[in-house]
Nucleic acid binder design. Structure first.
Lengths: 135, 135
DNA sequence: ATTATAGGAAACCTTTTGGTTTCACGTCAA
DNA sequence: TTGACGTGAAACCAAAAGGTTTCCTATAAT
């Protein structure tokens, strides 16, 4: 509904430290480009490009006010990240983790590479449940 | 602690879709490189390089067994991501979000770029609380 | 009407990234 | 001991990423 052309995905968008700082800066403020770029050691144009990438990922909204363009955080796409991360929650949820380790105890110990392991092609879903994007 | 030389950070490590798939594949299995690369359309060497990046970020552990090197997921560094994400939790925690919007209601409406901003909601440094890394 | 400001677009440069192919080395099997 | 197997290192390459500078176009302001 809201994503038009996610040319840049969230994972890539937040990979850059400068962009992470941008998100923080725009967290609760709506700021025009020049004001934003004052916080960074790089050129205004460079900041502008970062903002575009964030906008492409849906992480900031742009709103024209007179001759300036004001940017503001839109954290919604971060929910995708949150969902992706939640896949690993069982590792930190001690109760489940204990069960998990118990269940997998047998196949963990010194399994030869070519044993009766159902790993190869077997489950197509097991290969990419939360995120299947590939280039 | 545990991190030796985090040449690659988690954010960058998970930015690549192939690497995300690797994490899934190594989620509960410990696999040697050749077995792993069978799941990907790229060369074994390329997979090996991805594994190195993941290892640098601490996301996989490598263990030599005979002539093969077995890799396995170590999700711990993902906690950093989780922590980073939690900074934005207030946006999705409805109770707090309501308060937040109320508090910021006045400064949201057409605030001039140079107003008396006192927003940094208690949580600390306004510019870079969760992540301050910069290149 | 003229001038200053804000910000994106273009062209360009350098470094990084993701990939490949080839090679060398250690380990296991005949 | 001779060969096949499993991997990483090296050299190399094309494309993408992050920057910069130089325009160009709107929108104020005087």
């Amino acid at each position: 509904m809201s994503e038009a052309s996610p040319k840049h995905d969230v994972f890539q968008a937040i990979a850059d430290p400068t962009r992470r700082r941008l998100l923080l800066l725009l967290d609760d403020r709506e700021l025009p480009v020049t004001a934003i770029s004052g916080h960074f050691p790089i050129s205004r144009t460079a900041v502008s490009k970062h903002l575009r990438i964030l906008a492409d990922a849906g992480l900031v909204t742009e709103r024209k006010v007179g001759r300036e363009t004001r940017y503001r955080l839109d954290p919604d796409p971060l929910l995708e990240l949150k969902r992706w991360l939640s896949y690993y929650d069982r590792y930190w949820d001690n109760k489940l983790a204990a069960l998990q380790r118990f269940v997998e105890a047998d196949k963990t110990e010194e399994a030869p590479p070519s044993g009766p392991r159902a790993l190869s092609s077997g489950s197509g879903a097991a290969d990419a449940p939360p995120d299947s994007s590939n280039r």
